[in-house]
Write a protein that binds this DNA or RNA. Structure first.
Lengths: 196, 196, 196, 196
DNA sequence: GATGAATGAGTCTTCATTCAT
DNA sequence: TATGAATGAAGACTCATTCAT
């Protein structure tokens, strides 16, 4: 992944600035000049801290995926109850949103670009672990009768994973708190919109 | 909206080619040269058919929104039953996916880019009508007791609209038919994943 | 090697202009802007004709090597006399100098740069054929008693090949005609500087 | 020439490191960062020792020329025999090669660059002395019948000077010892490749 | 309608150099 | 002496667009 030695504060600050721009405009649509402008330096000066625009992206993406995977592993580790595990995943995922808006936006908008490059091979690896986790939980829940018997695990996973990551794009309009979103999601997820 | 004077077959063909590329790579990431290559002509020659890359995008987006709005209006017009209307919307939306993958991808990935330009003002207008339609239906369903009483109409709308458009990005992996996706969505939407 | 379809006259002209600059300054020290300036266009416009600076170099180098190898093969093909063959090589090489000054200078000054790139792999291949030709001739001449018995074929080859290509760098100072140089070289080569 | 006030050991070491890189890659193709990396310091820190990259080059080149000129003068001073003097020049030149590979490579590859700058004016001066020495020797040898009567002194000088400096570029392939090269050169020079 | 050639503004990146600490 | 951060000018290359033929 990234060679994160002991990132100086300056460097960390620059990554944050870049991340904000990536979140707003996407990775490819953001120019190094915009990043440099935000930092009040010349664009060439960025290369004192990073050896390429992509290495900034790398730093953001790998940090995000480490966090996400940690959340998934912790959610599964606790107990045997699939429903409880899914709820923990949803809650941890949503919590991660705020810290990693940039990464999420980058993946949503430029997935093809990143996943095609060898350098970002870890993206596919991580996604596979995430997928496997969901599918295991959904199938286990189905077998133990907690979830509907006709549930298509893979299809449901695809839907849920993407749904979970949707609200990132909204954060500009601060209409809802994170808690509201999580609860709305969980209700929708488990119970649908029908009244009981 | 679009300046579709005499949409000669050649022109229509070019728009389709461009759309395929936009769907794959996004609007901004697609170069006019790639479009021209796909058509077997030189990039400059495209300008005999369109006066800019954006006018191609315009053509694609406006056609899409006309279709979508028509679907929404038809869905609502039929009856008073909110649940039936929503099901019609979902079914019509999903049907539109195949015909308008390019437009959806463009909106998902470059919404900020388009919606910021006066030329694409109709995007915001159309979105507002879509939003209003959903909210009306959800609130009516809540009031008549068909939907849960604690349903946040606006939040649910945001979630549902985006969810509805998610599967567009998947089409590369032909794992499911459109029908499968629609049914999965409707079940999730109305009933959640819990077993009865 | 290079994909030389049907090089337009414009393209050919540009290659010549670039070659002149490469010959004077070396490949790496020459900027695309200088080439464009020489052609009276903007630097970006060069990329309408070539997809990279290196592809211009490729065009120049591969044309040169084809010419050189043709000369070597023809020189060897004629007869069995090593001394005559070497004389033909020297004469043909020197004749090639004028047409390919740029290529020679590029190889002399930036050999490490080019030979390290896969794209220019044919450079090593060609050099090997050249080396083998010399060594065969020298060894045959030694065995048949035409050349000195203590001649180190490989060492002599290295010296001779490089010596043969030296005068390219001088052409700025038009002190000698090509014929003078060839004759001087041949005398030095066969007889040394000692008086008989 | 060079501003070698107090050539501390550190400084001398740095010059040697730089020289190695210059010899491998050429002066212009070597970056100050590479030099600093080789020394284990940051590139900016080099400027505590030298006020510019060129001043490092200056140090290397002027040391070389002093050495070479000393060799030439000593070679001529000894006796009146042109042939003996030339042999001494060749032997001393070749001996200098090992100590000054960097300088030679720099001159071979970037002569135009250096000789064009006022700061390196001494290069032209030194070259003129070298040229004059050769021409004197060759003409004297021709007049006294030691060398061929039809020898073009200037042309032969140009050839010989460059030939003498050729083997520098080979040192990567350690196929021959310096002695072997010298002997090969001298035999070629005096006797040619023909068998007696 | 299409080609071939060009523009001009902008992209990421490199590199010698400077300087406060 | 060295570091860490920056400059500023330049480098190769991209791309939407224009236009004479």
């Amino acid at each position: 992944m990234s060679t994160s030695k002991t990132p100086s504060e300056r460097r960390t600050h620059l990554v944050r600035l870049a991340g904000d721009l990536f979140a707003e405009q996407g990775f490819r649509a953001t120019t190094v000049r915009q990043i440099a402008d935000a930092a009040g330096i010349l664009s060439g000066s960025l290369y004192h801290h990073f050896d390429s625009k992509e290495s900034i992206g790398d730093e953001i993406l790998s940090a995000f995926l480490e966090d996400v995977l940690a959340g998934y592993r912790a959610a599964v580790a606790g107990s045997d109850d699939p429903r409880a595990a899914i709820e923990r995943i949803v809650r941890s995922s949503t919590a991660t949103l705020d810290r990693h808006r940039a990464a999420l936006t980058m993946l949503q908008r430029d997935w093809n670009y990143f996943s095609g490059q060898p350098r970002f091979g870890y993206l596919r690896t991580a996604m596979k672990e995430i997928e496997q986790t969901w599918i295991d939980l959904l199938e286990r829940g189905r077998e133990t009768g907690v979830f509907r018997a006709d549930l298509d695990a893979r299809l449901t996973y695809r839907l849920l994973r993407d749904i979970l990551w949707l609200p990132t794009s909204w954060t500009s309009s601060k209409s809802w708190t994170t808690d509201q979103i999580v609860d709305g999601l969980l209700r929708l997820l488990f119970d649908g919109i029908k009244s009981a």
